[in-house]
């Protein structure tokens, strides 16, 4: 059964990574759900069991709606009298959550690298880790032999340009920036022209963090996107919302508005090595059908990995399994 799930993931690179995934999130365990663990063990599917599951999902920041939908899915799928044994029950739970996530679709976590050049735009609210994430993606892509350029589109936050330039040095990437305070769209425009001349494969464009309810700032972002669209056919090839795993229900508003303005192609869930479970990303997939592409499980460059729903579900349920 699980083998079939795995086949659905086009970019599943390996066992080793799955292992690491779980280690990263293992820190997130705590003992709040001892009772639920006991109920699972006893294979007892009464009202209290479903309530405890609901709490677990809410605790993971999935939000009331998604949590209730999942639990009602489970109520339907799990036989009243319980299953053969606890293991089968666990498997059934994982399967239900999995089905709910993929929805009979193929979830592709690949980043599009066939553009000439490819342009990835990184967007999100303040402090989610956009610049750091770009640094890590740059390292991984240049290790794969891609010519990468980092574009300093955050011309607002003090130190942001310098921060990105340090990442460019560390990863041996090309770097394009203008002065602090310049129009980020013009930074994009000039960077693309330069990248074309230099035969760059991928441009990773940083943007200033902005809260999604700031209209002017969102318009600025839309303009950046338009400029990129105009300069390269099919670009930006990826527009990625960087989301802090500790984010609560506001993540829904972030996804909704950033998607309206920039047409998101995926999510990057950062800081999953803390104790937060990042369930908001599932709610976002559930409500807006935006897939999670990458997750950040630690400070190191290799700690940013492709998302794997199955590993995630196991890690999420690690407390009770």
């Amino acid at each position: 059964m699980m083998g079939f799930f795995k086949a659905l993931f086009q970019t599943k690179q390996q066992k080793k990574q799955a292992q690491k995934y779980r280690i990263g999130m293992a820190k997130a365990r705590d003992s709040v759900f001892g009772e639920l663990a006991q109920m699972l063990k006893n294979n007892r599917l009464d009202e209290a069991f479903f309530e405890a599951l609901e709490e677990l999902f809410i605790f993971a920041d999935m939000g009331v709606d998604t949590a209730l939908t999942l639990v009602s899915d489970l109520r339907e799928k799990l036989p009243k009298q319980g299953l053969q044994d606890a293991d089968e029950l666990k498997e059934k739970i994982v399967e239900t959550l999995f089905d709910h996530y993929v929805k009979d679709d193929v979830v592709d976590t690949n980043l599009y690298l066939k553009g000439a050049p490819s342009v990835f735009l990184f967007v999100g609210v303040n402090g989610v880790g956009k610049t750091t994430t770009i640094g890590k993606v740059a390292k991984q892509l240049s290790d794969q032999g891609k010519k990468v350029m980092l574009v300093a589109g955050d011309t607002f936050r003090a130190g942001a340009i310098h921060q990105l330039s340090i990442w460019a040095q560390r990863t041996g990437s090309a770097f394009y920036a203008k002065d602090e305070g310049s129009d980020p769209s013009s930074v994009m425009f000039e960077a693309i022209a330069k990248a074309k001349l230099e035969g760059i494969d991928v441009l990773l464009c940083d943007t200033a963090g902005r809260l999604q309810n700031k209209k002017n700032l969102m318009e600025e972002l839309a303009k950046m996107r338009r400029v990129i669209e105009r300069e390269i056919e099919g670009a930006p090839h990826e527009t990625l919302l960087v989301l802090d795993a500790t984010t609560g229900q506001n993540g829904l508003s972030q996804a909704k508005i950033f998607d309206e303005v920039t047409n998101l192609t995926g999510l990057i869930l950062t800081k999953l090595d803390g104790s937060a479970k990042g369930g908001i990303a599932l709610a976002i997939k559930d409500q807006f059908d935006i897939p999670i592409k990458l997750v950040g499980l630690g400070e190191k460059v290799d700690d940013l990995i492709y998302f794997d729903i199955e590993d995630y579900i196991y890690a999420l349920l690690a407390d009770v399994f």
Binding site: A60, D244, G248, S275, A276
Partner: peptide, 12 residues
């Protein structure tokens, strides 16, 4: 603390 923090605020 970020006001957007979810359930994890307690643990933090």
């Amino acid at each position: 603390l970020d006001a957007m923090t979810g359930q994890d605020a307690v643990s933090v």
